[in-house]
């Protein structure tokens, strides 16, 4: 670890390594951290070690992370979908790799703030992560001062949060908008509805090409024909899945089914 990333693990920080590396091990189909370590020893400079480093450094997330995807959702993607679904009035959203919940709750705030008409629709919003601890945090919706400082516009803080001691909790109506479900992207997925919008950002970086292909392919089958997928800034379907095309949306890109 130290060689690759300059991260030094103090004694007593083992739980940290365990919680961060368990997803990587499971993602590779290894059942214990021990197996991961022996793999790592046999190929200390390979792509596995960079994934381990990545995992150790990032559970990283923030409200309105990168900003542009949420602007695109507001200005372009949702208005189009709301028009296209005006008759059936249903919308399915999926946020894969929700981490501690900032991303799904950002989407929930955008929905509440700018599309109040959706209150009359059947909206299913599912957020998933591999980590039980992260899902617990999602359901609880409690954030530290540093977390609410990051990227969250002050008027949203005032409107959608309550102060609890030194921390801040997102309002219950927003928490109730999202179903949180445990899901290992690299494993078997529980039943999911056909989706209109999929956020799967800053998680494909954990996987090798083969696993990426498998995951992106399964997302493709889940997307409705006019649905779209959001990836992280450093991620792409290029050379991963030719069934997608990249399309400009506001100041960013979304991925749609290639025709």
């Amino acid at each position: 670890m130290r060689e690759r990333s300059a991260i030094v693990l103090d004694a007593g920080k083992e739980y940290l390594a365990e919680s961060r590396l368990a997803p990587v091990a499971r993602g590779l189909g290894l059942s214990t951290l021990g197996e991961l370590v022996s793999r790592l020893r046999s190929e200390p400079r390979g792509s596995l070690s960079s994934r381990v480093v990545e995992a150790m450094t990032t559970n990283e997330t923030s409200f309105f992370r990168d900003l542009n995807p949420f602007d695109a959702l507001r200005t372009t993607i949702l208005p189009q979908l709301i028009q296209a679904r005006a008759k059936e009035r249903t919308l399915n959203l999926w946020c894969a790799a929700s981490s501690s919940g900032q991303e799904p709750y950002t989407i929930a705030m955008v929905l509440r703030e700018h599309f109040p008409q959706l209150l009359e629709w059947r909206v299913r919003f599912i957020a998933t992560d591999i980590s039980t601890e992260m899902l617990r945090r999602c359901r609880e919706g409690i954030y530290s001062q540093l977390e609410i400082n990051r990227g969250l516009p002050a008027r949203y803080l005032v409107k959608y949060f309550e102060k609890r001691g030194t921390e801040w909790q997102i309002h219950k109506p927003l928490r109730d908008m999202v179903e949180f479900v445990e899901l290992n992207l690299a494993g078997h997925w529980p039943a999911l509805p056909q989706c209109d919008v999929v956020f799967i950002r800053n998680v494909l970086i954990y996987f090798n090409l083969e696993t990426k292909r498998d995951i992106v392919g399964r997302v493709r089958k889940l997307l409705r024909p006019d649905g779209c997928m959001f990836l992280g800034g450093a991620e792409t379907t290029l050379n991963v899945d030719e069934g997608f095309r990249r399309e400009a949306a506001d100041k960013t890109f979304v991925y749609r089914l290639a025709r």
């Binding site: 309105f64 900003l67 540093l146 400082n149 002050a154 949060f161 102060k163």
Partner: peptide, 30 residues
């Protein structure tokens, strides 16, 4: 860091609000 103060600042005409201590990222994101 109280909710009332954030509200007061916004109604006085502030556009954003950062609570100390902050990191550089906090300022950049805001």
């Amino acid at each position: 860091t109280e909710m009332e103060q954030v509200q007061r600042a916004l109604s006085a005409g502030a556009d954003e609000y950062v609570m100390k201590p902050f990191t550089k990222d906090v300022i950049l994101e805001k």
